[in-house]
Amino acid sequence: MQIKAAVARDRGCALSLESLELEAPRDTEILVRVVATGVCHTDMVVRDGLLPTPMPVVLGHEGAGVVERVGAAVTKVAPGDHVVMSFNSCGHCPSCEEHEPAYCHEFFPRNFFATREDGSSALSQHGECVHGNFFGQSSFATYALCHQRNVVKVSKDADLKLLGPLACGIQTGAGAVINALKVKPGKRFVVFGAGSVGLSALMAAKAIGASVIAAVDTQDSRLEFARSIGATHTFNPQRDDVVKALTEISGYGFDYALDTTGIAAVIRNAVLSLAPRGACGILGASAMGTELSLDEVHFMSGGRRLIGIVEGSADPEKFIPQLIQMHLAGQFPFERMVRFYPFEQINEAIHDSETGRTIKPILLISA
């Protein structure tokens, strides 16, 4: 079938809206009419060539839509079902068998290599291969093929236009707090980086009852927004001695810290802000080979912990419905971060995300 898609053809360049051919779903694949899809920082990192994804490629990995067709072996969903498409996983490695798909042993090839398992792509243009299957979906398009492992059926009462970002960015931030760090009520939590991931983490910390919630960012507008959704303290490192300020709040530091920046110096400060037995999660993407430097005596003597986190340590099949229920209950107002853009304005949406004008862009693909 003919579809419209945003194609990344050259590193660092704008995406181009093009007509492509999309193959029919194979036995284990699901054809989804994309209603809306979030724009994530990971899409920009791949567009800029910082990860090993081949070009030309259709990116997009926070898709929500309606099932159009299913392959012969698909039993999880049926045509007409409303779905969110999340990250892909293999289903048979030790992590997947223990219900930890975010740490699938094949996470990189299943999500970043932009091909099927056999190396083929379902996308083409006049005989030229266009890579697809990015995060098992490539949802910067009017239609996408996904898989039973990465599709989540949602209620038809839920607003599909809003749900796509639950598949990655929002799931990552909230899951870091709820699933990975397991922040407890009454404890102190600080997030470094108040983008959509960090703000999702902040909302989750408030929802579960953290008593002190701090946000650190260089944009005052983001800090103001953080206060409006529950931050009790905010700091701008361009003005504030963040580690000193965080330590002084309680006299000995915070119970939990989360870094969303991937910047080694910021991670060091996040760890330095921890109280004894505190835990710091890191989830920001950085260049391959980036090394961290910690104060070994401070880290070791206080029994502090550093935890790598992917996709919020979430099982999307369980966690996305949980986030939807939290949202419906008024405990997780992620809609306040969102701004909608027509699909044709995808490059404007990306620019607004990169410049901080929009916290979480969502592209409206079809009605």
Rank of each mutant, 00 (worst) to 15 (best):
D27M: 14
L17N: 03
G193R: 06
A174K: 03
D118V: 06
V297S: 13
V152Q: 07
L223G: 05
A314F: 03
V66M: 01
G284S: 05
I362Q: 10
P361R: 00
V338G: 07
L17E: 10
R336G: 11
I324M: 02
D220V: 04
S95G: 05
F112E: 07
A122V: 06
F343C: 01
E68D: 12
S228W: 06
V70L: 07
E354K: 12
C104R: 02
G63E: 09
A205Y: 11
E100K: 09
T260F: 11
Q322G: 01
G302T: 03
D43L: 06
V130Y: 04
V66S: 02
S211K: 12
A176T: 10
S221E: 14
S89H: 15
L202A: 02
N133T: 12
P56Y: 04
L223K: 03
A144N: 05
K156F: 08
I263G: 04
S250F: 09
I208M: 15
P54W: 14
F189W: 02
L258F: 13
L274A: 06
G80D: 06
S138G: 08
A275F: 08
Q137Y: 07
A287W: 12
S286N: 12
A207H: 09
D10K: 13
I249N: 05
G127Q: 10
A314K: 01
I365D: 02
S250E: 12
A5F: 04
V183Y: 11
E98Y: 05
R305W: 13
T172R: 11
K182I: 00
A285N: 11
N111T: 04
D259F: 09
H41S: 07
V70M: 04
A114S: 13
L246W: 11
A210M: 01
E98C: 07
F87I: 13
I365V: 15
D48C: 01
V67N: 00
R149L: 14
V32L: 04
L202Q: 00
K187W: 08
H92R: 13
N179S: 14
G262I: 01
V34E: 00
K360M: 03
A270D: 03
V266S: 11
A14P: 03
G278F: 06
G186R: 08
K360T: 00
A158I: 13
Y256I: 08
Q325N: 14
A205M: 08
D43T: 08
Y252E: 13
S313W: 11
G308L: 03
